[in-house]
Simulated assay, not measured.
Amino acid sequence: MSIALYTLGGTIAMAGTGAQGVVSRLSGADLTAAVPGLAEIPLDVRDVEAVPSAALSYRQILDLVDAAGAAVAAGATGAVVTQGTDTLEETAFLADLVWPHPAPLVLTGAMRNPTLAGPDGPANLLAAARVAAAPAARDLGVLVALNDEVHAARFVRKTHSTSTATFASPNAGPLGHVIEGEVRLLTRPSRHSPLPPVDADRLAATRVALHTVTLDDDPALLDRLAAGLDGLVVAGFGVGHVPPPFAPVLGALAERIPVVLTSRTGAGSVLRHTYGAVGSETDLARRGLIWGGLLDPYKAKVLLRMLLAGGAERAAVAETFARRG
């Protein structure tokens, strides 16, 4: 059985150095030819339009998920996607929300391009292919494989701008490792049911924003931001706190659109009922904000947009976040 390999752009596929920096793209054939040991894994290489990961859209990722799903339905053991790492934590989570197959879909990339000493792309691609081919990786949804670690899409974060060890799962740790070519999984979290398909036009028209609260922030910015929105994610301080003047503004917004409360810290959960001051998590819950749980602001934004594009009402949104957060 083969592994379907879909190659996008990103650092892993950059080769030539020009006046504007590294820009040239390696094809899938170029990528695989440069990886010792990869020949032992049958690959069906499918080059996709090369774009920096910052330029990717929800629609492109959902189309890629459909293509990978068709490949595994036709007999592929699993699928691998190579892309830039800038948005990989979000694209992986988006794919995981809709991936229905037992076969693994594994995303990977690189932090050092091939023009640098010690590029990590070849090792990451080999690890991802081995994970996609591993029977132990089935029924785990979408995975991320970099630095010989295996992460669940719903937990993984990019935590450093340049380090090859940038991808981590602060709340859960990696699911496993690739050791001497063997995929060793240490834990198996339960999977959530996939979300139903969303209409492409409705998805494109669904507007969800993210506001990160900062010291001495101006609540008037929220009114300007919220004009024309279908939903809002707020990244609050610590366990889910905002400056007191924000509380009535967020409460008024929550009467109009779903507003999800998350933490800007990068790890840990928003609390429910520990603190009671104005602007605390308890106060904001009373005002109608939706609990984001362990979901970081970026993943919460992806989930909220998908739910709203699928026609979910506020109660359904809150129930979904309660289960997945």
Rank of each mutant, 00 (worst) to 15 (best):
L94Q: 04
V72P: 00
E89C: 00
A79I: 06
Q83D: 02
E49H: 13
T82A: 06
D44N: 13
A79H: 04
A54H: 09
E89W: 02
E90S: 07
E49C: 07
G75C: 09
D66K: 12
R59Q: 15
G75K: 08
P42N: 12
E49G: 14
E89Y: 01
V65N: 07
G78L: 11
T77V: 09
E89A: 11
V51S: 09
T91N: 08
L56H: 09
V65W: 01
R46M: 11
V45D: 05
A76N: 07
S57E: 12
S53F: 02
A73M: 05
Q60F: 06
S57W: 05
V72M: 06
R46W: 08
A68L: 00
A92G: 03
D86P: 02
L64D: 03
A92P: 03
A55K: 13
D47L: 10
V81L: 05
T77C: 06
A79S: 14
V81D: 05
V45P: 04
A70N: 12
G69N: 02
E90W: 00
A73W: 03
A74F: 06
V48L: 15
Y58V: 00
T91V: 14
F93P: 02
V81M: 05
L94V: 07
S53P: 09
V81R: 01
A79E: 07
V45E: 09
E49S: 12
I61D: 01
F93V: 06
R46Y: 11
L62G: 08
A67Y: 08
P52D: 15
A67D: 14
L43P: 08
V65C: 14
T82M: 00
L94I: 08
Q60P: 00
Q60G: 14
D47T: 07
D63K: 12
T87P: 02
A67I: 04
V51F: 13
F93W: 05
A70L: 10
